[in-house]
């Protein structure tokens, strides 16, 4: 099959979802767009199951925290091995109540990726079979990748700020 192009894909998605997809851009050739959290599973399953584009492969799920906008963006990278093209789908959630539907209904591989995202950012994936921390200890209490938390262990006593000029 010939390689599908981004324009083709934009037309196809625009036809199907219209205004529900926004912020379309192509940084470094990778088609990027956003959708709302209600539509995310519809969009993902359309991308996965449409015979013409066939994004059968979930490359990655992660999140980004934007504290000044009070938002957390959940980012999906999909890959169509058949037509050799990637897309990036973003869903912006409010940081106080980050909830989104789980993609485990479409890909088994989403399971740990979502657990990692939950662990790091506290995004709650609804419908996930087993949403608990994966890398950090259960009693950590915070979601460490959020920007407000420091890199270093705040409980350290041997590291005095005055030695580091702060």
């Amino acid at each position: 099959m010939a390689k599908a192009t981004n324009t083709e894909l934009i037309d196809l998605l625009g036809e199907k979802f219209g205004e529900q997809l926004f912020d379309v851009s192509e940084p470094y050739g990778l088609l990027t767009f956003s959708t709302t959290k209600d539509k995310v599973i519809d969009v993902l399953s359309f991308l996965k199951e449409n015979g013409r584009i066939n994004f059968n492969f979930l490359t990655d799920i992660t999140a980004v925290h934007y504290p000044e906008k009070e938002q957390i963006a959940v980012v999906y990278h999909l890959h169509s091995m058949v037509s050799g093209i990637r897309v990036r789908l973003k869903v912006f959630l409010h940081e106080n109540d980050p909830k989104i539907a789980s993609a485990t209904v479409l890909w088994n591989g989403a399971n740990w990726m979502e657990r990692e995202t939950y662990d790091f950012f506290g995004v709650k994936f609804e419908g996930h079979p087993d949403l608990r921390r994966i890398l950090n200890m259960d009693d950590l209490g915070v979601h460490p990748m959020l920007k407000q938390y420091p890199l270093e262990d705040p409980n350290r006593v041997d590291k005095k700020d005055e030695y580091f000029g702060r």
């Binding site: 490359t59 990655d60 992660t62 980004v64 925290h65 980012v75 990278h77 088994n108 591989g109 399971n111 740990w112 990726m113 990692e116």
Partner: peptide
């Protein structure tokens, strides 16, 4: 995979590694 978001600062705004071992191991 390397997913890098740069906001013009000294360091990446966000850098995510798509780590094959992590994803392969879940099965």
């Amino acid at each position: 995979g390397f997913y890098l978001i740069n906001d013009g600062g000294r360091s990446p705004y966000r850098l995510h590694f798509r780590r094959p071992s992590f994803i392969n191991y879940q099965m």
